[in-house]
Design a protein around this nucleic acid. Sequence first.
RNA 1: GCCGAGAUAGCUCAGCUGGUAGAGCAAUUGAUUCGUAAUCAAUAGGUCGUGGGUUCGAGUCCCAUUCUCGGCUCCA
Length: 637
Amino acid sequence: MINLTLKDGSVRQVAKGTTLYELASSLSQGLARVAVVGKVNGELKDLDYALTEDAEVEILTLDSEEGLEVLRHSTSHLLAQAVKNLFPGTILGIGPAIANGFYYDFDSEHTFTPEDLAKIEAEMQRLAKEDNSFKCKLISREEAIQYFQDSGEKYKVELINDLPEDAQISLYTHGNFTDLCAGPHVPSTKMLKTFKLQSVAGAYWRGSEKNKMLQRIYGLAFAKASDLKDYLFKLEEAKRRDHRKLGMELDLFSLHDEGPGFPFFHPKGMVLRNILEDFWSKEHQKRGYVEVKTPIILSRTLWEQSGHWDHYKENMYFTKIDDQDYAIKPMNCPGGMIMYKTKLRSYRDLPIRCGELGLVHRHELSGALHGLLRVRNFTQDDAHIFMLPSQIKDEIIAVIELVDYFYKIFGFEYHIELSTRPEDSMGSDEAWEMATKALEEALQAKGMDYKINPGDGAFYGPKIDFHLKDCLDRTWQCGTIQLDFQMPEKFDLTYIGEDGEKHRPVMIHRVVYGSIERFIALLIEHYAGAFPTWLAPVQVRILPISDKHNAYAQKVQSILKDQGIRVELDTRREKINYKIREAQTEKIPFALVVGDKEAEQETVAVRRYGQKDTKVLSVEDFQALILDEINTKRTGL
RNA sequence: GCCGAGAUAGCUCAGCUGGUAGAGCAAUUGAUUCGUAAUCAAUAGGUCGUGGGUUCGAGUCCCAUUCUCGGCUCCA
């Protein structure tokens, strides 16, 4: 007999060799029916796994994230089976579970079309009903290689060859389909009911552009049909927040064939930009930053000195002036270096926190462009902090706090990544290690959770990245803090120390918004276009009932305007309903209706965006209310 | 850059197997002076992304190209 500790802490004695399924049955028939996999000492196992020693055991159902993940993974096998049935000769790549579903990569002569997806899905439904169980078989490396070589599965052979020496190799079979897989899986295909194939996309084998591009089929899978339906509905809702759609509807910006990736900002978009930039400048001044502006075009020699010529050329645009080579800046830092060197610096001057809202141009791959989220020119809210080595930690912590302060004001949730040394980079291992450690220590000192993003650092140093989510939960890097020992070296930056000798300062490159363009895109999606009053391009629109009331409306407008409130007046000869509808469609925070009553009593009927009820306030009271909302940057809802 | 899909009026879209373009909203004009999400009517608006080709005839078929979308890669 062996002792099993269950999730509730109770201990159950069962015969050695009892399977997880048998255990589930003995606990309750209901549980056995919905059981997906088991967890033995923290490891996921198939239900037919036989227990041979004392263990902590948990039976998982589709109510758990892990259970769902297994379901999604099993559905990817079902997809592969269906594709192999319908398109014999297809070679398999990999097929993992992902958020909300799964994908499988295929190498096929046939190009999968959207119409094929429907056929494949039907075949999956048919196969699922066959009620085939997933069976696991452990085999030796040689057998496995032999097996997949014989069946022409070259990618599987490659995968096996790359498995660690001691890896246990297992095959999973259901019906006529066998795949290399670590498992575990649901007990039977009959559990695979709620899925939907979504799209086909190209994907490089093993994520490297040096490899062949395979065809990836994406699918969704959920525990219940209602969950799938809910998710599809949520997707549709999310698309309504898309900044590309809202940006055009709200007349904020536009993109044109004449300048792919070079956005045009309209008057209303400029209002938003200017507010963000003003806020930025004020907050930075408070924290001891100065602000500069460096040129957009600088000589080739500078870029050679900075290392961009060697490490960043692919992303840069070039031009010639009087037969000399120049580059359009992809980063602001080299310009900042030149400024630092205009004076002799003392240790007493440091840290120098030098901000720059700098317009940079980068040649992004055409296929990567995406609204304002990925563009070819953008304004970085950059700053370079030159400091003594002893100031590193405090400065990094101050920037982490600054980014957090900003993001909280907008109500953004974010996650942090620590990006380490990339392949194409410069500097010594020691310098990189020191820099990476400094960043890590600052994060730990702040108690921040973060994940490591190996090899994703800048070519001159490691970085802390702050990521925000868009309407479809894709994450985008915004803020970043990069610690750099290389540039000061390359540019021979110095300061005079207490000892009267020259020393090398350390520098940080950092941005808070990241790029104003990207940040605006995320703001649009975050607020679904309904900006809080302090950010709204138009804060108030006054709607006279008829043109009898225009004079009073104008008076109210000038009172509010004098307070710096962005207020419009709608004097068109339209019905009040029509004007209100339009003000709502444009997501203006306040619509003020004025008619006989209001004109007589010097009041306004206040209708807030998204709310049906109105409140009649005196003009002074309304003014106080809106100014308070603007000053406190409240969302108002 | 790569794989796939798409591009028709300012916007959203229709246009079957090739027979020289249509709706709604927006716009303009006129009438309506109106109390919390669309007043009525009339008018105007497109060389169907661009360039070639096939054909008596191309929005529709073929080729190239640009841009957009979804991914991959890359990145603020």
